[in-house]
Amino acid sequence: MDRIAIYNKAIALQPLTVEEGLFLYEESPLSELSYVANEIRKRYRDDNKVTWIIDRNVNITNVCVSNCSFCNFHRKLKDEDTFTTTIDEYVEKIEEMLKRGGNQLLLQGGMHPKYGIEFYEELYSSLKSRYPEVKLHSLGPPEIHHIARKSRLSYRDTLVRLMKAGLDSLPGAGAEILSDRVRKKLSPGKATTDQWLDVMREAHKLNMVTSATMMFGHIETLQERVEHLLKLREVQASRPEGSDGFTAFIPWTVYTEGTKLAEEFDCKPITPASYVRLIAMSRILLNNVPNIQASWLTVGKATAQATLYAGANDMGSIMIEENVVSSAGANYQMDAEGIQKAIVEAGFMPQLRNQAYEYQDMPEGVVNLS
């Protein structure tokens, strides 16, 4: 294959094939991939700004039936240390978030065997009645599939009811690798590849703000990574006119400390260069997704900074309270000042955003380095 011809095709935002993507992934020097990805980044963001957000993670419950081999956080229904977050606990967490300038909750749910749609409708409406200004970025396709199946509803009806109750946007959680071979081994209780994608198709028909993710560095092949990206690109291309579809793509590296996954498979750590390469390939292959986010939480500040020259244009959230990835060994932390300093140190201007990637003014009381 002609590497330069493929580069030119990518920079022109023309979709690459699986074969072309895999060829670049395996054969191209990282410097060349980074250059091409950075040129594509400029097609979407040419103002030298790198975006970030202040929000808070809250786990709705730690009870989950998905049985993911990489997760130390989940519990079975009969375990002694199970919990479901109470409204009083939400209020305490939201008040702290508001004081720190945030206005969005990332509500991560386990697939609780007893919680149907009524539970989530009551939760969202209760939170919205108290804090109408707070955005609820919640669940993900596996949870939507679980709720729909338990409540005997279609994906569309499930999403419509949750939106009416207060759901603002849908994270791309639970994608892992969109390959049923991988999913059967890593997360056998979760939605299949097609089910995950179908939930997102319905969300896009409803013009919901959504994102897409990838968790890599375990048992997947390079071809499965490329195919994952092209499946996302296909769903994005099929979104209805007027729908933004996926606003961003966020890949992160798996952490396996103390997990069942570590016992079953020899998962080699992802090097900084490998992460930057994945970011570059994401920017090159996802020609119709406007934003690529660096996962500083799983790779650290320095590697995240490097990705800003390889296609990434967003540093994500300061992550007030994160339990799932940290329970498997991730321990990086940054506050509002720290994430802005990291962006400035890399040679860019920090810009606060919302979940729809719209620029926001800095709240009072928050250090402003922009």
Rank of each mutant, 00 (worst) to 15 (best):
Met319Cys: 10
Tyr332Ile: 03
Pro290His: 04
Lys93Asp: 15
Ser169Asp: 10
Asp2Glu: 11
Ile60Ala: 13
Pro171His: 14
Glu257Gln: 05
Asn67Lys: 11
Met281Ala: 15
Ala237Ile: 00
Gln14Cys: 13
Ile177Cys: 03
Ala302Cys: 03
Ser154Met: 14
Leu206Glu: 05
Glu118Cys: 01
Asp194Val: 11
Val324Gly: 11
Arg181Gln: 01
Val367Asn: 12
Met315Lys: 08
Glu133Pro: 02
Gly347Phe: 12
Glu118Ser: 00
Ser243Lys: 12
Thr84Leu: 13
Asn331Lys: 07
Ser317Pro: 08
Ala280Lys: 04
His112Cys: 14
Tyr7Arg: 04
Gln104His: 09
Val50Ala: 08
Gly258Lys: 12
Ser31Pro: 00
Tyr359Gln: 11
Thr307Cys: 07
Thr298Trp: 07
Leu308Asn: 02
Leu16Thr: 13
Phe70Arg: 01
Met319Ala: 10
Pro251Asn: 14
Arg56Asp: 13
Ala212Gly: 13
Leu178Lys: 13
Gln104Gly: 01
Pro171Cys: 15
Thr256Gln: 01
Asn48Arg: 13
Lys164His: 10
Phe216Trp: 13
Ser34Val: 02
Asn288Ser: 14
Phe216Lys: 04
Gly217Ser: 11
Glu176Thr: 12
Ile147Ser: 03
Glu220His: 04
Lys341Arg: 15
Thr84Met: 08
Ala165Tyr: 04
Asp55Thr: 01
Val91Thr: 14
Ser327Ile: 03
Val18Thr: 06
Ala280Cys: 01
Glu227Leu: 04
Val63Gly: 12
Val58Ala: 08
Leu24Arg: 04
His204Val: 08
Leu77Gln: 00
Ala212Phe: 06
Val209Arg: 03
Gly300Lys: 13
Trp52Val: 08
Tyr124Cys: 10
Val134Pro: 00
Lys260Ala: 00
His137Gln: 14
Glu39Pro: 07
Thr85Phe: 09
Arg181Glu: 08
Arg183Ala: 10
Asp361His: 10
Ser154Val: 11
Cys71His: 02
Ser129Ala: 13
Val289Trp: 05
Glu89Tyr: 11
Ile117Ser: 15
Lys190Gln: 11
His228Pro: 11
Lys341His: 15
Pro269Leu: 09
Glu263Asp: 10
Gln340Met: 14
Ile147Asn: 05
Gln305Arg: 08
Val58Trp: 04
Asn57Gln: 08
Leu186Pro: 03
Trp196Gly: 02
Ile60Val: 08
Val36Leu: 05
Ala165Ser: 15
Leu308Cys: 01
Asp198Leu: 06
Glu26Ser: 10
Ile318Asp: 09
Gln333Phe: 04
Leu352Lys: 00
Met1His: 13
Phe348Tyr: 12
Glu143Pro: 12
Thr86Val: 07
Lys93Pro: 01
Tyr124Ile: 15
Met208Trp: 12
Thr61Met: 02
Thr210Leu: 06
Ser69Cys: 08
Val209Leu: 09
Lys49Asp: 12
Ser295Cys: 02
Asp157Tyr: 01
His112Phe: 09
Val160Gly: 13
Leu153Ser: 11
Gln333Thr: 13
Glu220Tyr: 05
Gly172Asp: 09
His218Gly: 08
Met362Lys: 00
Tyr359Ser: 14
Ser238Lys: 07
Thr307Ile: 09
Ala248Lys: 02
Val209Met: 02
